[in-house]
Nucleic acid binder design. Structure first.
Length: 494
DNA sequence: AAACGCAGCAACCGCCCGTAC
DNA sequence: GGTACGGGCGGTTGCTGCGTT
């Protein structure tokens, strides 16, 4: 049985609102409020409008202190930073911009900001290409690097636009490349976000493309390991996110191999035994950089760009995705360049914890077969980040609380009543934190252990429609609204 | 001046989620 | 636990105004 419509569509007015309608709605709400029922409201005041339409009109236009247009650069930057972190969750983004509505921001993004971003991308491509051609010329004259000079020209010959990494030695290329690798495409959120990450999440003038070029003045060699063509994982499976999950997350297509960072990604979608997520490395963005990258200043080329090799090559036939190559160049351990790490965890799954004695739960959405999305909130600089967290998170000391049956937990633990335990994993259905030593939950946030439990393919069998529905139901509680996080007492706990 | 194309934006649609019963 | 319902949200549509030809 389908859902009953919220109103009789035949008898409601649609289209633009008249000043009279606006006045009626506004004066009623100002006097009486919405009464908690938008559906009944239009009848009360004699408006032939759908309740939802009234709600939208009020929220987006009539309510006090609404700002329209005239977005400042700071607002642009906030939008971009948040877009990196949480994607197109406009209501959450709007909550950080007083006077702005989600609809406004959404429209602004779709009509202007995205284009502005793409304009920058084109500019950057042109600059990079120029730089690449000069370097290529130098390499040709000097006889090439390691006998690979032909490869460089091969790249350029194949696609003049693909001079983005002209200094890279050619890596083994899979038979079928993800579309984004063959031809940059910025029609989807993921691509736009990657681009934003690359730009540092900002449009402001002090992070223009020139600086972006200068910033890559140090060679970076990520300490990644590469899965081989058979998806063999060169280290413990419990520390690895299954490749299909990440692949689909990145490109929507299966790929044959993938880089996996040593830290920061857990078996969220693995059928393996749950890992103690309370042992997650808690690191700052800067620490993250130092942990995950080795800097080799010996390989800086004449144009100030690092040359990545060897470690990317892995065992025969491996390659790295463009995204990771880009990340590697754009993210070094220069503290002045710290903001370039912001959003990195987008590429790393959802376990990069960036904390200053504050909790940041990992972020999950649409948990399922290869559907892990999202990442923790990230600001565009560490100061912004801390300021943001001060605003968003309670001032009281916060500590994640482990659970008694978690043998490996390093955090304070307690035995929880069955009522709050997931039947699947026997772990709490939601994260429990200690606020001033009292167990609280953050509403709507999720506990990584639960995600593991519900996202395990083994729990539901093959990813057919029915099982996906089951998974969806079971995973509803992992939806997170971190930016609206409110500590709330946990029923049944002292 | 008219036609056309485009950008911006308000509003709608349909799905999802939380919650009350 | 299941169901119904209202609210919330993101994606999309279509109108309007402006600029260009």
């Amino acid at each position: 049985m389908g859902r009953a419509p919220c109103c009789d569509k035949a008898n409601v007015k649609r289209g633009p609102w008249s000043p009279e309608e606006d006045a009626k709605l506004k004066s009623y709400i100002e006097q009486h409020g919405t009464g908690g029922n938008w559906i009944a409201l239009p009848q009360k005041i004699g408006l032939k409008r759908c309740g939802k339409s009234c709600r939208l009109r009020w929220l987006n236009y009539l309510r006090p202190n609404i700002k329209h247009g005239g977005f400042s650069e700071e607002e642009d930057n906030i939008i971009c930073s948040l877009y990196i972190s949480i994607g197109s969750r406009w209501s959450i983004i709007a909550a950080q911009l007083p006077g702005r509505t989600d609809n406004d921001i959404k429209n602004y993004w779709n009509t202007r900001l995205k284009k502005k971003l793409l304009g920058r991308q084109r500019k950057e491509h042109q600059l990079a290409r120029k730089s690449g051609l000069v370097k290529q010329d130098i390499i040709k004259r000097s006889g090439g690097v390691g006998g690979n000079s032909n490869s460089h020209s091969g790249i350029l010959a194949a696609d003049g636009q693909n001079s983005y990494w002209p200094e890279l030695p050619v890596l083994a290329v899979p038979t079928v490349l993800p579309q984004q690798q063959q031809q940059p495409c910025f029609n989807d959120h993921a691509s736009i976000r990657k681009l934003l990450i690359k730009l540092g999440g900002r449009f402001s003038s002090n992070h223009d493309t020139n600086q972006a070029t200068q910033d890559s003045s140090t060679d970076i060699q990520p300490t990644f390991q590469v899965l081989d063509d058979n998806n063999n994982i060169p280290y413990a499976a419990t520390a690895v996110t299954p490749t299909h999950q990440m692949d689909e997350h990145y490109s929507g297509k299966n790929m044959q191999s993938l880089l996996v960072p040593r830290h920061g990604i857990h078996a969220l979608n693995s059928s393996s035994a749950p890992v103690a997520l309370s042992n997650i490395d808690v690191i700052s963005p800067h620490q993250f950089a130092q942990t995950h990258y080795m800097v080799n200043t010996d390989n800086i080329d004449g144009a100030g760009n690092g040359i990545m090799h060897n470690m990317f090559q892995g065992q025969g036939g491996n390659y790295v995705t463009d995204q990771l190559k880009e990340m590697a160049v754009y993210n070094n351990n220069n503290t002045d360049n710290q903001q370039r790490f912001d959003g990195m965890e987008y590429l790393y799954g959802d376990e990069m914890m960036i904390m200053n004695n504050r909790i940041v739960s990992s972020y999950g959405e649409s948990i399922g077969w290869g559907e892990m999305l999202g990442c923790p909130p990230v600001a565009s600089s560490s100061d912004d980040y801390n300021a943001g967290m001060d605003r968003l998170m309670p001032a009281a000391p916060v500590q994640e609380c482990g659970f008694a049956n978690d043998q490996t937990s390093q955090t304070p633990s307690m035995a929880f009543p069955a009522s709050i335990l997931s039947p699947l994993s026997a772990t709490p259905k939601f994260p429990i934190y200690l606020f001033n030593q009292k167990p609280c939950r953050i509403r709507n946030s999720f506990h990584p252990s639960c995600v593991k439990a519900v996202s395990s393919t083994a729990q539901f069998g093959e990813p057919n429609k029915e099982n996906k529905q089951k998974l969806q139901i079971k995973s509803t509680f992992v939806k997170e609204k971190l930016w609206e996080a409110v500590p709330a007492p946990v029923k049944g706990l002292p």
